[in-house]
């Protein structure tokens, strides 16, 4: 007996969004468009309309768009745009700068708040994957001591560790996505899943930021090579995600309280992961 996965992503939507954001990012990095041009293009493509409401069943397309934007490092913040509808804020940040995200807008409503967290986790997962992918290709191409970096066990293990964190982050995020898609953004168990995803994402950013730059050497630390785009995105989105949720310690304390209330960490975890449950 075969078991079907919960989320059936539409490859056509994924591909269309990927292509669109790759094109936009390419034009932006070539200096051919302004941020306002990007916003207009995104609106013309209908992506700004993909904002998922409070109901279930709207998140898959939004997730594909958010991930595509993050993978391409296109400097238009689709998580913010779709969660808050704030057009100006979505293009306000300087993509070549890292700043503490404390001044970034925080949504007022609970559902927009959850939507923004989910969007941030989706962005982080996609950007982690992109940084890892760049590092794999670099390690395959770059030769030192007469062989490709990829042939050194130390490099292999560093990137394996990075991949493990990417996998953990994207999987817990997909779990939260499945909850939002099926039970709605107001699902009572979604906040705990988002707290968990925010913690896993935070750790993944630390590891991947470290490992991908180490593998790249000095070229990764330049503005002419693409890695920095993903790195700066990751740092900004992680900070904003954690600030929006009361800090990563706040996320951890809430999950810890759930474990204490249940009298068992295992029981709290299984309850939070049970579809339709009201923990």
């Amino acid at each position: 007996m075969s078991i079907a996965p919960v989320l059936a992503t539409d490859p056509l939507v994924e591909e269309a969004a990927s292509r669109a954001f790759s094109d936009l990012a390419e034009k932006w990095f070539a200096g051919k468009v302004t941020r306002e041009n990007l916003l207009t293009a995104v609106e013309q493509l209908g992506f700004a309309e993909a904002a998922p409401g409070d109901d279930s069943g709207a998140w898959l397309a939004a997730a594909a768009i958010i991930r595509a934007q993050a993978r391409a490092a296109a400097p238009i913040d689709m998580a913010l745009l779709l969660a808050t509808g704030d057009r100006a804020a979505a293009i306000a940040h300087d993509p070549s700068e890292y700043f503490c995200a404390a001044t970034s807008p925080m949504p007022a409503s609970a559902s927009a708040h959850a939507a923004l967290s989910l969007g941030r986790c989706l962005q982080i997962g996609a950007a982690l994957g992109a940084a890892l992918e760049l590092s794999i290709r670099y390690a395959q191409d770059r030769k030192q001591f007469g062989r490709a970096l990829a042939q050194f066990q130390a490099i292999q293990h560093s990137l394996a560790l990075a991949a493990e964190e990417v996998a953990a982050c994207t999987t817990i995020t997909d779990l939260a996505l499945a909850c939002a898609e099926r039970e709605g953004i107001g699902s009572p168990r979604l906040p705990a899943l988002l707290d968990a995803a925010a913690l896993v994402a935070g750790h993944a950013v630390n590891v991947v930021y470290d490992m991908t730059h180490q593998v790249h050497g000095a070229i990764g630390f330049t503005q002419e090579y693409a890695l920095h785009r993903h790195s700066l995105d990751l740092l900004r989105w992680r900070d904003h995600l954690h600030l929006a949720r009361g800090g990563d310690i706040g996320c951890a304390e809430r999950l810890g309280d759930a474990a204490l209330a249940a009298g068992s960490a295992w029981r709290a975890v299984t309850a939070n992961m049970t579809p339709g449950a009201t923990p």
Binding site: L175, D195, L199, V200, A252, A268
Partner: peptide, 19 residues
């Protein structure tokens, strides 16, 4: 500190269990 440790542990456990 105990609450935080239990929470960090729970988050990773959820990810591993989903995987």
């Amino acid at each position: 500190r105990v609450r935080e440790a239990l929470g960090r542990m729970s988050a990773k456990l959820m990810a591993l269990r989903t995987m």
